[in-house]
Simulated scan of single mutants.
Amino acid sequence: MMAFLFSILTSSPLNVVLPTLIVFFSLIFIYNALQSLFHHFISDGKYCCSSYGPEKHLLIGSLIPFYKNRRRLLGWYTKLLAESPTGTIVVDRLGARRTIITANPENVEYILKTNFNNYPKGKPFTDILGDLLGCGIFNVDGEAWHIRRKLASHEFSTKSLRDFVVKALKSEVHDRLLPILSSSEKKKKVVDMQDFAPAFSI
């Protein structure tokens, strides 16, 4: 669609381009208006008619409060979630997908555990974070995720964690703490262990 529009814009005179743009943006406006009306009047009202969440306007949704809070989204979302009795809010904006944000533990468990397969990350997510996360457990879906999770679960078993902690503590005490205490003893210097505790935490 965009390629078609671009070809018209670059190869046509202004008397053709202007009406085409007007029609194009009118169609977008009509689509958003119908979508907004559908969510406002026809849907069950579970989310859209709730008094919790950002203020919503008939055609533009939550665009105005979203724009006002665009530089502090995390704080704004946190405030809205704290005010919502369900711990879930819906943000509808003109020209953007409906965003559902939840801090409800039951919803989070349902999404991440009970019905995990129904909430894939999807190609846009994996494409954006592919360079950072690669094909690891945090950036795959379906069977690939199950395989990586199974591999990772062996690394985080109780025995392997206990062995790691014991090994790390032995190393820290033997290689770092004992030399400090030995040096302090030779100098007859009092040592406040609280000063060293953060440095030796794992």
Rank of each mutant, 00 (worst) to 15 (best):
G142S: 15
E143W: 07
E143D: 08
W145F: 11
W145I: 05
H146S: 13
H146C: 13
H146Q: 14
H146G: 08
I147S: 11
I147M: 05
I147L: 11
I147N: 08
R148Q: 13
R148T: 08
R149H: 01
K150S: 12
K150C: 06
L151A: 11
L151K: 13
A152P: 02
A152C: 00
S153W: 05
S153Q: 10
H154A: 14
E155W: 09
E155V: 15
E155Q: 14
E155P: 08
E155G: 15
E155C: 15
F156N: 14
F156V: 15
S157L: 13
S157Y: 10
S157W: 04
S157E: 06
T158D: 14
K159H: 11
K159M: 14
K159I: 10
S160G: 01
S160C: 07
L161P: 10
L161M: 15
R162E: 06
R162L: 05
D163A: 14
D163Q: 10
D163S: 14
D163W: 13
F164Y: 15
V165E: 07
V165I: 13
V166E: 04
V166L: 11
K167F: 11
K167Y: 12
K167H: 12
A168F: 05
A168N: 09
A168I: 05
L169W: 00
L169K: 03
K170T: 12
K170P: 04
K170S: 14
K170F: 12
S171V: 13
S171H: 15
S171G: 11
S171A: 12
S171T: 15
E172W: 02
E172F: 10
E172K: 15
V173M: 05
H174P: 03
H174K: 06
D175W: 02
R176L: 01
R176Y: 08
L177D: 02
L177H: 04
L177T: 07
L178K: 11
L178F: 08
L178Y: 04
P179I: 04
P179R: 00
I180V: 04
I180Y: 05
I180K: 00
I180P: 02
L181A: 03
S182Q: 05
S182M: 03
S182I: 06
S183H: 03
S183I: 00
S183R: 00
S183Y: 02
S184W: 04
S184C: 11
S184M: 09
E185H: 02
K186A: 00
K186P: 03
K187C: 05
K187H: 07
K187M: 06
K187E: 10
K187D: 07
K188N: 01
K189M: 07
K189A: 04
K189R: 09
V190W: 08
V191L: 13
V191W: 06
D192L: 10
M193G: 09
M193T: 09
M193K: 10
Q194Y: 09
Q194P: 05
Q194A: 11
D195M: 07
D195A: 13
D195S: 11
F196S: 00
F196Q: 00
F196W: 04
F196N: 02
F196K: 01
F196M: 06
